[in-house]
Every structure is written in C-alpha cells, then in structure tokens.
C-alpha cells in the first residue's frame, strides 16, 4: 500500500498527515485527527452519518479517500459552533426535539448548514430533499425539518 503526504484544512486548522492510499476521509478524521463527532453508520455511502463539508459541500466522508481531500477545506461537526457559541441550527435542533439518539445528528446538522448557505428560505420539500441522504431512524424527521426551518428564520433575522 502506498503512502502519501497530504494536508487537510479541518475546521480552519491545518493538518499535515501521512496516509495510506486506500484510507477513507472518515477513518482519517476519526482515527488520526481524533475528531469523533462524525459517525460511521454503514461505511458504504448509504446513511449520511459520516457527512462532512468538503469545500463547503456535504459529502459522505466514507466514500471519499483521504488522498482525494488533499489540500481541501473540511468542516466537521466540531467546527460548527464558533467560539463556544452554538450555531442557530444546533440551537434549533435542541429546541425542536430534533435530536434523539444523536447518531445522525452531526451529519444532519452539516447538511442543513450547507443548505441554509445556499438557500436562506427553504421550503419544507427543499429541506426534505436536502436531507434525504441522511438517514434518521429515531425522529421521523418532522422535528428535524421544523428545526431547520426555524434556524433559517433565526439566521435571516440575525443577518438583517
């Protein structure tokens, strides 16, 4: 197995790493960087629990090789709260009961975060579509959708 020297910008911090060519971004972030907030639900691209933002776009990090992410910017759930202050999406997830077991939550929040950057006023159907790759077995999604809508409202007010 060949080794590669790569660097990743993760949550604004630069990491230089030596990785084997077949390792997934998910494994490298969880094991080598010890950022365990992202989860492994399937390792096959089916569940979205491993979602990170790669240059601002949500991806299933289990389906991305670490070497493919070389030089790119990555946001994990640990990078969403700024200066110890929760993002409005995180607050809304708590307030609306959008969290149960929490295993899907980090991925769900990152997907929502990317959505709200592109679409400040998403309709319910747009939210449903955006999060359709993030499985949640606990909540039935209703409170998650409520939370994302409410976070969008709060962010609009904050930005006005």
């Amino acid at each position: 197995m060949s080794h590669h020297n790569i660097y990743l910008m993760v949550n604004g911090k630069r990491y230089s790493l030596e990785v084997e060519s077949d390792r997934s971004l998910l494994d490298v972030v969880r094991e080598d960087l010890n950022l365990t907030g992202i989860k492994k639900g399937c390792d096959k691209g089916d569940c979205g629990a491993c979602t990170v933002l790669l240059n601002g776009k949500p991806v299933n990090s289990c389906m991305v090789l670490a070497v493919q992410a070389d030089g790119k910017e990555i946001t994990t759930i640990e990078g969403v709260a700024r200066d110890g202050k929760l993002d409005p999406i995180q607050v809304a997830f708590i307030k609306h009961g959008a969290v149960q077991c929490g295993f899907c939550t980090p991925g769900m929040i990152l997907t929502a975060w990317a959505l709200l950057r592109e679409n400040r006023e998403p309709m319910r159907e747009e939210i449903q579509k955006a999060i359709s790759g993030n499985l949640c077995r606990c909540t039935g999604y209703v409170q998650i959708i409520d939370a994302i809508q409410s976070a969008a409202r709060v962010s609009r007010v904050n930005n006005e």
């Binding site: 759930i77 929760l86 969290v99």
Partner: peptide
Amino acid sequence: VDRVDAIGKVTGETKYADDLR
C-alpha cells in the same frame, strides 16, 4: 424541557462506544 443530553449530541462531543479509546 430541552433534552439534558442534547448539547453533546449537536456538537459531536458525546462519546458513543466507537468513540472511546
């Protein structure tokens, strides 16, 4: 009432079994 275990779950700080070392 807000879930008492929610903050760790929305920030990724909560440790599940696979997160323990």
